[in-house]
């Protein structure tokens, strides 16, 4: 290991920023991811991250701060996925495919038109949490807190609509509203995660902690808590390990998540 000890490591401002932003985003991703996984909508995250790629390109193209463009555009895309699958004789997964492809293509076209920001744009493909700015930390914390607040206050509606949509309707849950709400929350979360693990790996951050939790949990609330703990542990150790071993942080976080999933699976098999 490096000569740098843990105390010194934690004194770096960029490391502190990475931990704060990372922990908030990790909690939101795992909480939301559980609903998506159980609804078989895991790939919504993947589709929306591709849209955020196009949206970030658009921001860079016009010289606007990419987050400001990405958040509204990805939210619109999230609603579009629902509307396309409702109105246009298209299955949900195909709708994700359409929106996702449009996102990537527009990003690539904008990049080739600009002749200048390729490097910037492609840094978003794999993200870099150690490079988050102060503004990005503040933004991540505020938006994550809002998303968490909404998840907590709509917990039972989200749970019921995910468990059995038809039954939820008979208890007065407005399931159409809940579906749109979930998509909008996912959109915000995806944009927040892009900086951390990059466009290519966002969906893993949504999926892996939840499937790990599903190996162990005997109840929904427990699954949500286990997912959050797993996600936060992976982020904290991922940042630390990647720093000392000089590895890409996003990929390290995801690989740790995969290891935790494998351990949970083995534990379930053996226990």
């Amino acid at each position: 290991m490096n000569s740098l000890n843990i105390i010194n490591f934690l004194q770096y401002a960029f490391v502190q920023r990475a931990f704060v932003a990372g922990i908030f985003v990790a909690v939101v991703c795992s909480a939301l991811g559980l609903f998506l996984v159980l609804r078989k909508m895991s790939l919504v995250g993947d589709g929306l991250s591709h849209v955020s790629f196009g949206a970030i390109a658009l921001g860079l193209f016009f010289g606007i701060y990419p987050f400001y463009v990405a958040i509204p555009l990805v939210m619109i895309a999230a609603v579009l996925i629902i509307k396309i699958s409702e109105k246009a004789r298209v299955y949900g997964d195909a709708a994700i495919g359409i929106v996702s492809a449009v996102g990537i293509s527009s990003g690539v076209i904008l990049a080739s038109m600009s002749h200048g920001f390729n490097v910037d744009l492609f840094s978003y493909l794999f993200g870099n949490i150690l490079a988050v700015s102060k503004l990005e930390v503040v933004l991540s914390v505020i938006l994550s807190a809002i998303v968490l607040f909404i998840i907590i206050t709509f917990y039972w509606d989200l749970f019921s609509a995910t468990y059995d949509e038809e039954y939820a309707k008979t208890t007065g849950v407005k399931t159409n509203f809940i579906n749109i709400l979930l998509s909008l929350l996912t959109a915000v979360t995806v944009v927040l995660s892009v900086k951390m693990v990059g466009v290519m790996l966002v969906s893993a951050l949504l999926i892996l902690p939840s499937v790990t939790a599903l190996q162990l949990a005997k109840g929904f609330k427990t699954a949500m808590i286990i997912g959050c703990v797993v996600s936060v542990v992976a982020v904290i150790f991922g940042i630390t390990i990647s720093f000392y071993l000089d590895l890409p942080t996003g990929a390290t976080i995801i690989m740790l998540n995969a290891v935790l999933f494998a351990l949970a699976y083995l534990y379930k098999k053996l226990a």
Binding site: L38, I152, T153, F154, W156, T171, L214, F220
Partner: peptide, 24 residues
């Protein structure tokens, strides 16, 4: 689906949310 990790208490509690208003 068979993966859904709901406990018996949680499933039965779903029957009560018709009486609640936001935040439930």
């Amino acid at each position: 689906n068979q993966l859904f990790p709901a406990s018996v208490i949680e499933v039965v509690t779903l029957g009560l949310i018709s009486q609640k208003s936001w935040p439930k």
